[in-house]
Design a protein around this nucleic acid. Structure first.
Lengths: 245, 245
DNA sequence: GCGAGGTTTCGGCGGGCGCCGAAGTGTGCG
DNA sequence: CGCACACTTCGGCGCCCGCCGAAACCTCGC
């Protein structure tokens, strides 16, 4: 009878408060669509359990589904949802980093993620931060009074990268900061970040490692980043070669 | 024995997934410190229940406590936490706005909140959005390639408002967009937004209504906004005087 | 030092919810 | 047309956790 008002904040948080549902959302942060079965296996639960969770997440507006034959494919509902989950992860990592088992066998996977990965539709990790720093150092991105591309930065996409940025008409900002939870600094997100990431994948500057979010920087990528942004050793591998494990 | 890895995202979300804890955090969004008893009464639970919830939230890093004599005062742990909760509220409102009882008696309180309120330490509601629009229209704020104050905008704070902006050295950005969940558009947040809100309160341009987040625009406030930003009717009251309920 | 009032700890209760396996539905392939 | 497979629905189980009241603890003021 205590039908207290639902509190939308609590309802939304409840969707992410379960470990299995959170695992689903984190997996989907790679921006691609997964089938229900893939997600179930990934999270280590029965298909029936996953099915109910996924319906729950779709109803809550965090995921969208696309049915093809006997498959049900699921994606994050959009960049805003991805941003929210990334933000929450960043906060959670900050708070929980202290009380955590220092290392598990999967440390090598974590190392690959820390070097370079996608963050929904843009670049993250040391690579993403290094690119953002290079943008800032060359005056293409200004972070002193907010976070915005300069006129030079807008021109760079057309003249140097050779791709068109979407018009700023939509609700999505051209540039926005996204907190990198391994580097604990901001990297470039928004429509410009998405264009940059898509271009890098398309031109094989980076390639996906396995089926996850981790990326490998290719030789062509190193050359391109050096030529376009004067960026050498973008993932910090050279200077870190003497670091022990 | 299925000691699945804790999943920090789920842990964080779990803190906000309970209606009572969420109510606490939403109340604390006014940026001030509440005593444990005040929060318990506000949420309608026993003091013992509140006590445990609050310890939980402090342990999780969302709240910080300050003990004075027999009182325990609680605040949000910082602007980042406030931002996260605001973001989640915005998302939740967007998703849940459809299936909601259209109106309850507290509609007048909601109306006051929609007109003008604080959002942790900056201005929100129609007032906050109108000020942000005025900034943009006068070239003080650029939203076309991100979200940043222009050089004119930086000068405005010193020359027109007559207050110093904090150096951009800290981790906190000078300007950032904050999604307004009543207007569904961005308003100005960050250090500049905080300075503006603090100045408005200090100079009595706005005053708090009761003990909540809602604000009333004073006559002095109308004059100041008109003189400084060419902004008339910042809360839309004049044009809305014929709107039925 | 004693009472009043704010806060915390402790049991105990109850509901909600995540889990599974089994059975049911729908799709694709041979 | 029937099997295989992906997914969904349905019961049932068990645990987690939020709730309360009683009692202890602490601080203040007299």
């Amino acid at each position: 009878m205590t039908a207290t008002t639902p509190i939308p904040l609590a309802t939304l948080a409840g969707l992410l408060a379960d470990a299995t549902r959170a695992r689903f959302c984190l997996a989907l942060l790679d921006g691609r669509a997964w089938s229900a079965g893939e997600l179930a296996r990934h999270a280590g639960v029965a298909a029936s359990t996953a099915s109910e969770h996924l319906s729950h997440l779709v109803r809550g507006g965090l995921l969208v589904e696309e049915r093809q034959g006997r498959h049900r494919y699921l994606r994050l509902a959009g960049p805003q949802v991805a941003q929210l989950i990334e933000d929450m992860t960043a906060h959670a990592e900050r708070a929980g980093a202290a009380a955590r088992p220092p290392t598990l066998r999967a440390a090598s996977a974590a190392a690959a993620m820390a070097a370079a990965r996608t963050c929904y539709d843009h670049l993250a990790g040391r690579l993403g931060v290094a690119i953002t720093d290079a943008f800032t150092a060359r005056g293409l991105l200004r972070q002193d009074a907010g976070f915005a591309l300069s006129d030079d930065g807008l021109a760079w996409f057309a003249a140097e990268l050779g791709v068109a940025l979407p018009a700023s008409t939509g609700r999505r900002p051209l540039a926005r900061p996204c907190l990198d939870w391994t580097e604990r600094r901001h990297h470039l997100a928004g429509a410009a970040g998405a264009v940059l990431c898509a271009t890098a994948l398309q031109r094989r500057w980076v390639s996906r490692i396995g089926s996850g979010r981790a990326l490998r920087l290719t030789g062509a990528g190193r050359q391109a980043l050096s030529a376009l942004l004067g960026l050498d050793d973008p993932t910090g591998d050279l200077s870190a070669s003497a670091a022990g494990g």
